[in-house]
Design a protein around this nucleic acid. Structure first.
Ligand code: FES
Ligand code: FES
Lengths: 135, 135
DNA sequence: AGAAACTTGACTATTTTAGTCGGGTATATA
DNA sequence: TATATACCCGACTAAAATAGTCAAGTTTCT
């Protein structure tokens, strides 16, 4: 089980943005250079962040992105959800009576994965973007 | 980020075994049928579990596998390590001074992923196989 | 002897990941 | 108003990982 680059880059880029105190828009080109992330990959990522109201965009020359809210109000869980990369530990449809692998009922490990899910998501829920830049 | 079938099946199969109180060897064929997991895939998984001293094998007719120790002493973390499927959240080599993406130094998110790693592994460290069958 | 069951390495189709490519559109500023 | 800057967006792709299968063993119980 590994974290994918999309989630890592999203958090990395947002942390980069959060590091600037003034509220001028920050261009992806700058983030791309500072964080060594492909510009076009960043565009893909920011599109989703924008749709989920985590950043706002300003088009045109001197445009860029700004955080849609204060860094202390952006939970990491929001970021993961925005990218549709939130942790999936259970092997079945959570909202169905059926289990994994074509079972008609939930398997012996179902509760465990569910618990693990809660455990991991609690971490993301409690962590704010601001927590990353306190160093 | 999703959990792979190998880890899920390993825990599932071991939980299946732990459910039997007598210490007769349990054949993979039986587990395969009960848990709807491909027999040959299970063989692959159990080879690793055996090498890591989580199960013992008994060959021949009426053979099978038995837990190498009591279910209350088998931590889930052992299982994940045995399968080499333990969680990898950081994007760099932990034991190097260098960072991810060819950085010469650790990135802004490094500590976060490290912390997440600890958080997740703590869950697996504290969870024993026995905890799964108390229902 | 024969069947049950573990052992092992190699192989493969499918899916996911980690991007790239190429063509847009909006807007500040010279 | 021309132009450069920067966001917008769908489609594509190479490489890696996943989720298995296949085939040919060996061991041991009955
Ligand atoms: S994981 Fe939900 S039923 Fe197996
Ligand atoms: S994750 Fe370790 S340096 Fe970026």
């Amino acid at each position: 089980m590994r974290l994918n680059t999309k989630s890592r880059y999203a958090v990395m880029a947002l942390a980069d943005m959060a590091g600037f105190k003034d509220s001028r828009p920050i261009s992806l080109r700058d983030i791309s250079i500072r964080q060594s992330i492909s510009l076009q990959y960043l565009e893909q990522i920011f599109l989703k962040l924008k749709k989920n109201n985590i950043v706002k965009s300003i088009r045109g020359t001197n445009g860029g992105y700004v955080l849609a809210k204060n860094a202390c109000h952006i939970k990491l869980s929001e970021i993961f959800i925005a990218l549709n990369e939130n942790v999936k530990t259970i092997g079945c449809d959570k909202h169905s009576k059926k289990g994994c692998n074509g079972r008609s009922t939930k398997c012996i490990t179902h509760n465990l994965w569910d618990e693990l899910d809660l455990h991991i998501n609690a971490f993301f829920e409690n962590k704010k973007l601001e927590d990353l830049i306190k160093n």
